[in-house]
Write a protein that binds this DNA or RNA. Structure first.
Length: 480
RNA sequence: CGGGGCGUAGCGCAGCUCGGUAGCGCGCCUGCUUCGGGAGCAGGAGGUCGUGGGUUCAAAUCCCGCCGCCCCGACCA
């Protein structure tokens, strides 16, 4: 046994999750409590996520900017709900250069406040709107309990902040981003998500409305994978961000904020990986193809290495992220295990027999191994990568649907949430009392009030808890 | 902060009950033989036993304090 084993999912999902991260060398615990080190394999996934998302933001007219890490404490206190939500979890700098600061500086838990302070300077006219900014940054939230990628004290994310002339424009923006997040989750991460609005009790501190994408993990718990907030005029009023309209009046801007974080990496792991280690969707795999040469004698090694080099160059030329594993003194089987653990989607084995037959063996991380002719190999591999991407999405979608129940009433909701979990659709009267009662009884929360596309054909008539008239359909689940 | 587990070599652990010169597996280094699913043999390097105090001729082991980590809950992206 070369390395320690991975705890099976059905034995202990949390242990499995940590084992996969360690085996794939995605991250490691750091000397700082609650903070992780993102290792090259994990950071490579994040970089690909960044690049995919960044492209979408720019295509839709957003620009990147950067604001300070440190925020005057008084800024955070200007918006009542915001301070209430974030004050308990901030890290505060009280000293600098050996002296106590006149005003403490908060390490940003999110950047609304400092950004609106600047928006106030930059926005005078309706001609300055919309202002569409995004920043890639780190933030700090002093959480009580942390988990690698899912909740760390410091985490990496992007936060978009936009200002608009009208409520409608801000609403359109909020939903545009929600749609981008969904597209990214589904097309890049192969992770199906529900979209919808949050209830008041789950919405962002300071927002008028919060929308989210929610995914179902393999342990049937939900993961909030991204949020998009309509902030109304709350922050504009707190920071006095006004503009002059075309007709000459003054008005506060309407604004939005939205973000996804390194938590997405955790979602990716828990959506696709198996008991052998990470399974990475090809679009986000830092290494999409690994070439493992096989040989006995020296002269075989030479010819196999040269064949591997040609295949590598061929695939690279087609834009495939490929690596040759030329390490000597390591048997092929050992390499297979290592690359499987790291989630590389495709492995190409090249030995003397393959060279003689003008082929390679193509093994998929998701199962199956077949010969593939050298002629047209790049196209074959490209096709296989696309199939794997598709297959992962379909499998995840099927898993979610198998764990989804619609039209649940009290008994089924309780049984499901206290049992195997999953997404439970049911009627909701809209009262916070019912929401809380369900949470107390099952630890489940309303993940979203689903968008039309996800709503049930038969609209629930009664609240799943109290039985009174339902105002809206809700989706419950236990969540990370 | 409450409950549970744990700190001994890079990693995973044994040793602790009953005190007496620190051990195993993996990994690492060197060499030879191997190589189509986790290689074998030989030699070798590597440890203030989390930390501070106490008991003792003698502490990884017994006693007291502290620190840290993981898991489950409350808080949350």
């Amino acid at each position: 046994m070369a390395e320690q084993g991975i705890t099976p999912r059905d034995q202990d999902f949390s242990a499995w999750y940590n084992d996969v991260i360690m085996r794939a060398e995605l991250a490691d615990y750091s000397p700082v409590r609650g903070c992780m080190v993102i290792r090259p394999n994990g950071y490579g996934i994040w970089e690909l996520m960044q690049s995919g998302l960044d492209g979408m933001f720019k295509e839709t007219g957003h620009q990147n900017a950067y604001f300070p890490l440190l925020i005057p404490q008084s800024f955070l206190e200007k918006e009542a709900d915001h301070v209430e939500g974030f004050a308990p979890e901030t890290a505060v700098v009280t000293h600098g250069g050996g002296k106590e600061l006149e005003e403490p500086l908060v390490v940003r838990p999110t950047s609304e406040t400092i950004i609106y302070a600047m928006f106030g300077k930059w926005i005078q006219s309706y001609r300055d709107l919309p202002l569409l900014l995004n920043q890639w940054a780190n933030v700090v939230r002093w959480e009580m309990r942390t988990r690698l990628f899912l909740r760390t004290t410091e985490f990496l994310w992007q936060e978009g902040h936009t200002a608009h002339a009208t409520d409608e424009d801000a609403q359109t923006e909020t939903l545009l981003i929600l749609g981008l997040y969904r597209k990214f989750a589904e097309e890049w991460m192969a992770m199906p998500v529900l979209t919808g609005a949050k209830t008041d009790s789950e919405k962002f501190a300071g927002a008028s409305r919060t929308y989210a994408i929610e995914a179902l993990m393999q342990d049937n718990k939900a993961l909030q994978a991204g949020t998009s907030h309509h902030l109304g005029q709350n922050f504009a009023k707190a920071f006095d961000v006004q503009y002059q309209t075309a007709s000459g009046e003054r008005d506060f801007v309407w604004s939005t904020s939205w973000g996804v974080s390194t938590r997405l990496v955790g979602g990716l792991i828990m959506t696709h990986s198996d008991d052998k280690g990470l399974v990475c969707p090809p679009k986000l795999a830092p290494i999409q193809v690994v070439i493992v040469p096989i040989w006995r004698k020296d002269e075989e090694r030479d010819s196999v290495f040269s064949a591997a080099g040609e295949v590598e160059a061929d695939l690279k030329a087609s834009g495939i992220r490929v690596k040759s594993d030329l390490r000597e003194g390591m048997k092929p089987g050992a390499k297979y295990y290592e690359w499987e653990g790291r989630g590389v989607p495709i492995r190409l084995e090249i030995g003397p027999r393959d060279i003689a037959d003008k082929q390679v063996m193509l093994a998929r991380r998701t199962g199956g191994k077949d010969p593939a002719p050298l002629a047209g190999l790049a196209e074959t591999v490209q096709g296989a990568l696309e199939e794997i991407q598709q297959h992962l999405f379909s499998a995840a979608l099927a898993r979610r649907e198998a764990r989804t129940r619609r039209g649940v009433e009290k008994d089924e909701l309780v049984e499901m949430m206290n049992g195997d979990g999953g997404f439970a659709y049911g009627g909701f009267c809209g009262k916070e009392d019912c929401e809380n009662a369900i949470k107390d009884a099952t630890k489940a929360t309303i993940r979203v009030l689903p968008d039309e596309e996800f709503q049930s054909k038969e609209t629930p008539k009664k609240c799943a808890w109290c039985g009174e008239t339902s105002q809206v359909e809700a989706v419950w689940a236990k969540a990370y």
